[in-house]
Design a protein around this nucleic acid. Structure first.
Lengths: 161, 161
DNA sequence: TATTGTTATACTCTATAACTATA
DNA sequence: TATAGTTATAGAGTATAACAATA
């Protein structure tokens, strides 16, 4: 049902009327920022956003060195060290030395960490699911249709490092 | 109910079961959080996100008491006081006593604050506009089609005040 | 007495610089 | 010498509790 009725902008050379793009950008920026803020407020379980994010990365990436965690989270090494300390004190992660390189400390999520993370995610998702369920079916369909674009937008196509 | 993950998504957009809702919620949550984080990193002008947010509220709401700013930003009164102090030290806001109630300090944005805020917004929008311009026209159209739904989602339908 | 704002105190988040241990 | 991680130091963000001034 979706149609390419909007401005047929060739992605290569021809410039689109930047007014449209800018307008879309403003609206999307506002919505995304607002939604993220609302979602953030939805998850007060005693963990800070920093700790939740680190936990999620450890869940996703398995046992990784502290430095890799820092890279993933885009924070400094000392910040990663401190975050790991706190998560460790809470029993949510464990730290094991790497046998092949004894400078490295491998960090991994514990069963407790996994459980807590699942709980946090469930709360956030539950709230959002409720909101989505309140939408008219037609609006929900349009939102679903655009999800892959949003994901495309937030996935690093090329990492300039 | 652990293993309800691999949901075969129905091809048409008709009457989605709640498993789909949860799936949509997860994807939307991730995208929104990521996009907000990227956008946040895009605006390093020496001001912190807290300060930018306060500045934006002062721009929007005009001269308001410190307590009102705290309410708007959903922070404590001492936090609002400190933020105003820093913005004031930077020349971005001004503080004037309310003649009708001398307990009240009215805070307002200065011309410098307005200019800086506009600059910050322009940068964020510019970055996102570029990204949007890189999208295939068809994807951009679908995203545009879903914008009003996103806005609908992040606008308080019923304000419990 | 109730309200507005500030100060006092304490903790987390964050970065840079300096240091230790290992490679 | 280079790298992984930690410790040292410093400043912002945050909250609760205690206080001052005003209503």
């Amino acid at each position: 049902m979706e149609a390419a009725t909007a401005t047929p902008t060739p992605p290569d050379g021809a410039a689109a009327p930047s007014g449209d793009l800018a307008d879309t950008a403003v609206r999307l920026r506002l919505s995304a920022t607002r939604l993220a803020r609302i979602l953030r407020q939805q998850a007060d379980i005693g963990l800070t956003p920093t700790q939740i994010a680190a936990l999620a990365t450890l869940h996703r990436c398995g046992p990784i060195p502290v430095g890799t965690l820092a890279d993933e989270e885009q924070v400094s090494a000392p910040t990663a060290t401190k975050t790991v300390e706190r998560l460790h004190a809470a029993g949510l992660v464990s730290r094991v030395g790497d046998p092949t390189d004894r400078r490295v400390t491998l960090v991994s999520i514990t069963a407790e960490g996994d459980a807590l993370l699942a709980d946090i995610r469930a709360r956030k998702t539950a709230w959002l699911s409720t909101r989505l369920g309140e939408l008219p079916a037609e609006e929900l369909a349009r939102l679903t249709d655009a999800l892959d674009v949003l994901e495309h937008l937030t996935t690093p196509q090329k990492d300039p490092s």
